[in-house]
Amino acid sequence: MSFFTHRGFRGFALSCIASALLVAGCSKKAEQPAATPSQPAVSYYKVDPGTAATLTGTVYYKGKAPARKLIDITEDPACVEAHKGKAYDESLMVGKGGALENAFIYIKTGLEGKNFETPTETVVIDQQGCWFHPHIFGVQTNQPVKIVNSDPVTHNIHPVAAVNREWNHSQGPGDAPLNRKFPNPEVMIPVKCNIHSWMRSYIGVLDHPYFAVSKADGTFSLPNLPPGTYTVAIWQEKLGTQEQQITIAPQQHATVDFTYKGK
């Protein structure tokens, strides 16, 4: 889909350059820079440090914590060797006191109209031991994502995107990293390997920086948040989604906890 967008944009840019050239050729004073359409003068939203708030919380799982499941990766003996240790399922990780790890928390509504700058730092997803590292992570739209294969086997990473372009790409042992971007917000994009069926990762793509993954103790933190009224959402791959409304005052240290009931 974005192929067409991309091509359409290129066509548009070219026609703009062409028309700019024409204009320049006809009237000598109009020296419009041809690159204007690809470098729009954008003003990014800046959080006021004087009023910035912080939202923190903990994610809990109530009920009997399920025993961790072993995943059979013996189909590819090279994977068994590369994995170094047992391969445990990461889809439901409950720690001490019911702390739920690997849930994705993000601001779902309340930031509309604010245009946040794209971070330049690269997020790395590594294929190591026939496993995606990390299992759950978030990026901002158009933030650089580097895909690395550290394994002695070939992988074929396949983000099964619905809003963004779905693609898959083969990466052999020692192959150069892939450098990709996800231009549209999408929570979550399941990522699989076309060769190793057990490999799974999920990417949350947002057009703002307010997202987090719960740690082993279930906690998360969304710092530097402008005051306002928000829908805070959580996604967990086995337990689904929840939402809470919260109004946050300037400089407030607000707290939102989430609890999933076990079966």
């Binding site: 992988h155 083969s170 052999g172």
Partner: peptide, 21 residues
């Protein structure tokens, strides 16, 4: 000449190649 072994070739196909239009 980007794939060095038959195993890599078979794995390339197993992954259904590289998506493109």
């Amino acid at each position: 000449g980007s794939l060095q072994t038959l195993r890599q070739v078979v794995d390339f196909y197993a992954g259904q190649g590289n998506s493109n239009p």
